[in-house]
Simulated scan of single mutants.
Amino acid sequence: MQNVVFNIKIAQEVIEYAKKVSAERLTKGTWGNISVKSGEYVYITPSGYPYDKLKPKDICVVDMEGQKVFGNLKPSSELPLHIQIYLNRSNVGAIIHTHPIYSTIVSITQREIPPIVEDAVMILGETLKVSEYALPGTEELAQKALEALGTNNCVFLKNHGLVTVGENLQEAFIATLIAEKTAQIYVEALKVGNVSLLPMEHARLLREKYITSYRQK
């Protein structure tokens, strides 16, 4: 392993948001994973380790080729997914992968969520895609998820769950909450059968406003 200066503050932040994910019941047990990109390295939760037992030393650090450079535990099995997003989205500094109920329902029943509510359009993107299915933990899954993610801040993994991204963990976590809320709204609205969509030109304007002027730096 390389000689790397371990940033304990980043590790503590990863643990903080792992506990938030558990508190919001966005995943069960040891499923899901969280990462932060710092320079040429990625801090990521370990594979199969309970969030409530995590200590800073348990957070794994890998380089951009996915090679572990710090930590005694095995990095999350979805490491290829995180690496591919970071390599292809320079504006992404944090990734959260969860298995929320309504997002998972969308992943097994829909191809996308159209623009239906303003906060989702602004924070996540105009049309939210479901990626094609691939086995978890594979490069194939990483590529299919990346393709469906595009420039959005969330993607639903077919028959699997949800991935959200952001400039930092706070933004990625808010994106997770909004994605799950939007999935619930859409699933329930489909039961009624009359779903009103935002005009696409308005959706584009709202998304652009969020990216260029709404967020506080």
Rank of each mutant, 00 (worst) to 15 (best):
V14Q: 05
E16D: 12
E16S: 11
Y17S: 13
K19W: 07
V21E: 03
A23F: 10
E24C: 14
E24K: 15
R25P: 02
R25T: 04
L26Q: 15
L26K: 11
L26I: 14
T27N: 15
G29M: 01
T30C: 13
W31F: 13
W31H: 05
G32R: 01
G32W: 02
G32V: 00
G32S: 06
N33Q: 07
I34Q: 03
S35E: 10
V36A: 10
K37T: 01
K37H: 05
K37W: 02
E40Q: 06
E40P: 02
Y43D: 04
T45Y: 04
P46Q: 07
P46E: 06
P46C: 09
S47N: 10
S47P: 02
S47K: 07
G48E: 06
G48P: 01
Y49E: 13
Y49N: 02
Y49M: 12
P50Y: 06
P50D: 11
Y51K: 08
D52R: 14
D52E: 15
K53A: 13
K53T: 14
L54M: 14
L54W: 10
D58C: 10
C60E: 07
C60D: 08
V62Q: 05
D63Q: 08
M64W: 09
M64T: 07
G66E: 10
G66H: 11
V69T: 09
F70I: 12
F70S: 14
F70A: 15
N72G: 11
K74D: 13
P75G: 09
S76W: 01
S76C: 04
S77L: 07
E78P: 02
L79R: 13
L81T: 14
H82I: 07
I83Q: 10
I83F: 09
I83P: 13
Q84W: 07
Y86N: 12
L87N: 09
N88T: 14
N88H: 14
N88K: 14
N88R: 12
R89N: 13
G93D: 05
A94N: 13
I95Y: 08
I96A: 05
T98E: 05
T98W: 03
H99P: 06
I101D: 08
S103R: 04
T104A: 12
I105W: 09
S107V: 03
I108P: 02
Q110V: 00
R111I: 04
P114Y: 00
P114V: 00
P115Q: 01
I116D: 13
I116A: 10
V117I: 13
D119H: 05
A120Y: 12
L124G: 02
G125S: 04
G125V: 06
T127G: 01
T127L: 02
T127C: 04
L128Y: 00
L128M: 08
K129W: 02
V130G: 07
V130P: 05
S131I: 01
Y133W: 14
A134K: 00
P136V: 02
G137P: 03
L141V: 00
L141G: 00
Q143E: 15
Q143L: 15
